[in-house]
């Protein structure tokens, strides 16, 4: 039979280890002694965009920041279960957290460029790793800024303060800063909630470009954004994983009533 539209969706149940970027096994989190995530099991496919949606406080940000152990910065944090990256539990005792975070980059809700030049912002992670060779830094800065679709706008003023950029440019700079470390996984925590709609679209387009080389996990409050940008979507509710499937089905024919209610705006 003739197929008019090409779609390639991996079956999430039958994901092989090569196709998996992050494997979450029975993962639970307690913050200040209250259960925030309850036995989450999921596999996040490699080089795809996975969106997490759900109400505020449903645990999606907590789950996201579990992937690079940023949630440990909170006081009173406890967990059980495993998060596997390349077949290795990142919560093992010997894990080098700083190194892990260079492989799993993260971008936050509000653009947070450092109060330095654009160039130094992009170099920040590299300098921390002790890389100082000027030529190499120049190359990486250019590539990262190009990949973040910012190069053309800032190439003439690399040494100006990053704080002079607009909100959307700052957020792209922050993405470029994460990309400079060539992360395998990029975690985006509501990356566009502080930006105007058009800038948001630019960032989304950028995210779409990124998936060629990077696995992207994005948390968003904006369901339409999740629908637009993601290949796969997770719906979380009160710490439980309710539904996880490819976005096409989730947003046209969700399997669970809770999901349907949430994405159609029927939730109480």
């Amino acid at each position: 039979m003739l197929k008019l539209f090409e779609t390639e969706t991996l079956s999430l149940d039958k994901l092989t280890d090569e196709q998996t970027a992050i494997k979450v096994k029975d993962f639970s989190v307690w913050l200040n002694n209250s259960l925030v995530l309850n036995k989450i099991n999921m596999r996040i496919p490699k080089n795809k965009i996975t969106a997490m949606i759900g109400q505020s406080g449903c645990g999606k940000s907590t789950l996201l920041s579990s992937f690079n152990r940023m949630n440990e910065l909170n006081q009173k944090y406890a967990f059980s279960g495993e998060v596997e990256l390349d077949g290795r539990d990142i919560y093992n005792k010997k894990e080098n957290v700083a190194k892990l975070r260079t492989k799993v980059g993260m971008v936050f809700q509000r653009p947070n460029p450092f109060p330095m030049s654009i160039y130094e912002n992009v170099c920040f992670g590299l300098r921390i790793q002790g890389k100082t060779e000027r030529r190499m830094l120049d190359d990486i800065v250019e590539t990262s800024l190009r990949n973040a679709a910012l190069w053309d706008e800032v190439k003439g003023r690399l040494f100006d303060s990053a704080l002079l950029l607009s909100g959307g440019q700052q957020q792209r700079l922050v993405i470029a800063r994460a990309l400079a470390l060539k992360p395998e996984i990029l975690l985006l925590d509501e990356p566009t909630s502080a930006l105007d709609p058009l800038t948001t679209l630019h960032i989304e387009e950028l995210i779409n470009q990124l998936k060629k080389t990077t696995t992207v996990v994005i948390v968003t409050h904006n369901m339409q954004q999740a629908a637009r940008v993601s290949d796969y979507s997770v719906f979380l509710h009160q710490g439980e994983l309710i539904e996880y499937s490819d976005s096409d089905s989730l947003f046209t024919m969700p399997a669970k009533k809770q999901t349907e209610d949430y994405i159609t705006g029927r939730y109480g």
Binding site: Q224, A227, R228, S247, D248, F251, T252
Partner: peptide
């Protein structure tokens, strides 16, 4: 339908 759902 897919486009309406995903792209608004």
């Amino acid at each position: 339908m897919r486009i309406i759902a995903k792209r608004n």
